[in-house]
Design a protein around this nucleic acid. Sequence first.
RNA 1: GCCCCCGUAGCCCAAUCGGCAGAGGCAGCGGACUCAAAAUCCGUCCAGUGUCAGUUCGAGUCUGACCGGGGGCACCA
Length: 955
Amino acid sequence: MSDGGTGNPGTSTAAAEAVPAHRYTAELAAEIERRWQAYWERHGTFHAPNPVGSLAGPVPEDKLFVQDMFPYPSGAGLHVGHPLGFIGTDVFARFNRMLGRNVLHTMGFDAFGLPAEQYAVQTGTHPRTTTEANIERYLAQIRRLGLGHDERRRIATTDIPYYRWTQWIFLKIFGSWYDTNARKARPIPELEAEFAEGRRATPDGRPWGELSRVEQRKIIDSYRLVYLDEAPVNWCPGLGTVLANEEVTADGRSERGNFPVFRRNLRQWMMRITAYADRLADDLDRLDWPEKVKTMQRNWIGRSYGARIRFPVGEHGVDVFTTRPDTVFGATYLVLAPEHPLVDEITATTWPSDVDSRWTGGAATPPEAVAAYRLAASQKSELDRQESRDKTGVFTGAFATNPVNGAAIPVFVADYVLMGYGTGAIMAVPGQDQRDWDFAREFGLPIIRTVRPPEGFDGEAYIGEGPAINSGFLDGLGIDEAKKTIIQWLEEHGHGEGSVQYKLRDWLFSRQRYWGEPFPVVYDEDGLPVALPEHMLPVELPDVPDFSPGTYDPDDRDSEPAPPLAKATDWVEVELDLGDGPKRYRRDTNVMPQWAGSCWYQLRYLDPYNDEQFCAPENERYWMGPRPAEHGQDDPGGVDLYVGGVEHAVLHLLYSRFWHKVLYDLGYVSSEEPYRRLYNQGYIQAYAYTDARGTYVPAEEVEERDGRFFWNGQEVNQEYGKMGKSLKNVVTPDEMCDGYGADTFRLYEMAMGPLDVSRPWATKDVVGAHRFLQRLWRNLVDEHTGAPRVSEEQPDAETLRVLHRTIAEVRENFANLRYNTGIARLIELNNHVTKTFGPGNGDGTPRAVAEPMVLMLAPLSPHLAEELWSLLGHEHSLAHGPFPEADERYLVEDTAEYPIQVNGKVRSRVVVPASAGQDEVRAAALAEEKIVALLEGRQPRKVIVVPGRLVNVVV
RNA sequence: GCCCCCGUAGCCCAAUCGGCAGAGGCAGCGGACUCAAAAUCCGUCCAGUGUCAGUUCGAGUCUGACCGGGGGCACCA
């Protein structure tokens, strides 16, 4: 080509000349990636066959079910942090697929939720329109990444055929009760039979047959695993909805929106997750999950063992829960929560003549003191309570009798005791509880130690081990022994019993929202809920004139919830024939919380088109059933690998386990747990920069000089944290695909560190991954002609050793999700190939090295690998293997080099045959000339030979 | 306040059972190519593992205390 002799160096012709026509550039990558993505789609490369149903096909016994926590399709699109886990699972899935396993990997959308609804409130756009557009945008972004999803299995929780089954599962839960003896859920008709046959007593003892139908139904309803309850809930006027405990922050505000949240009573759907507290806690031991997540779940369930003890107060009895029944001899007063129902009953009319002035709150009578205290307590927000841990309270004027020694002890009302936990009442043992100690000191109450602290203990309450003292028949016993003894004594004498308490509460399951699953329930003329028959499912969301719930002044605690669905009056008021002729019913106007759809989506991935069942049992058993031979006797089954952020450690993962266990109890699934193995990927974070006014400046325009940062000449301040539009530091996967190609982007994300570690994004580092792929390409393809440059010659012994060591390590690394080190090995191999066979070094790379190298690269950078595989003359995709196997012969070395230490410091080294025994190594080391010189004729005191490692000479 | 995790080169990260601190990448530096630059290629410098003690023939790895960062819980009896 000629440049025309005009000497214009800036022309594109010159630029094109500078880069060889077949160099692996972003442009070539884009072309290769488009082509292979089309190929995979055309050939259904990632379609995983099922045992039965519409996706049935031949299924090997060896399978793998990999799942990502599915995303909410937000309108903002993806930044480079989002796909980290998606790529991680894809590499794992592709690796296992190449090993010959039947691999199921797909991705759906958690598509109900507040943002689309809030957008609808603002613009009038139907949430479905917004949601579907966002899903399309999202799919376009992730498709570019070349994720090997079975696209046939995509679902969105908002799909009507999907939420039909969400409603169906709700009905199954509604139609069940928890049999505490059998420790499992059973269908409601079995409960009715127990009542009807007199095997189970009715609450007031009347025979079942004598109760009215409404009375019977109310009893049954009170047993259901999902039930309506007039319960204190977290009412958030600012959002116009109630929230689950989990959605309220510790300072009493909504997690979303940060509005004030008030406690008030409302009639709500509650899921009886507490029935499963023990199994949810116990079965954590059977799961391959990060300990951190298990601990968080255990803490959330908050199981504690102790006793209930009944303290007589006048003609009443106050039950307390304590984890330290062994300290009951040291109980010097009782405390009831302000909301405790017995407070009014026991409060005396007058103060005792010698009442301590600190106890009365300045009131003339106990009822006045209690009323004033209760009012003050009810007006305290969660935040107030948190800010001040000073102990407050008032005396009720009443005395309780300590059942173990007959002592009369005063009864207080104080807000450091919470109504929501245990019995809402405690026995206070200041000697062994710091909170009680603080209160006792404030109010001048006696303190009796019942555990002897160690010599020299100068603290206040003592909570450690020690022998019981001042405790009558318990004296001298250790804590555990004393607990057993006192519980037995309490039970024998009818003063109490051993007891277990949980922090876990039932799950509030109603939302006063529009964009969620409607409840498949109607109310009859008695106002009682009636389940719709299955053939009436799905209950579709009606259109409404206005998507907003009634929202209020965020501080208006007395406002009433008004859900958007209540406005669809034609839908709410229906005439239905539910088996006893057409009658008028009223629909439930709440919707389910966003968690509902994500409780079971792994099951629908397995059988997405089944309209007879939510999932065929054969398909569930194959993909998720327990496999004790592979995973041990205790294997509960579940998804083989579930990857997502640790932020779902409690809520989603606990709810999902709960639903799964219900389905297991009712016989619909064979697995006892939804996710056998869980893995938390780290977060990709980013630097952001603020100027002197605190305004964010575009991060990509900031320059670093000598550890300081400048933007437009002014110095700016570096911050580290999330990526976000408002922080002006977003980097998108699309930019990376444009600049380097998806294969480079994937490789870089996997190479920058272990999958579970959070780290900062650094665009400038991406080029390293790109150069590696470029070098690898250049080793196998002539950059000028595009022809493959492989030879059919056998590689030399050294190359074979490097190759097989690489294979062994890459297999091991991929299998354990350690992609970063696997990639390092591949780079090493490629560096060796470059030196030995690269351009300028002979006639090309031996096929025996080229092919395994391409195959090992395939899970990471699949498009490039497919292209090279095809250039090497293969007709079919490498997606289903083979994957190279290491030949043991090349893994053993003939000689071994031992470093020789003298007193722990490396002084020399010696090469011996690999077969050399300890004595030979020792002799060789001691004969080495530098060592001889160092020893200067002295006898070493000791010589340590670590086979295969080193020699240490101690002098 | 309590509990958990993490501190290795200027930066991101490696380092089986306690056994040679460095695999890989970025940046830097030197060189090749180029009229020049970018891109590309070749070569190369850099820490003794947050601090202090201890165990050991030998500690990044084990133990204790402290410092720094991140996370969870928070009057749960």
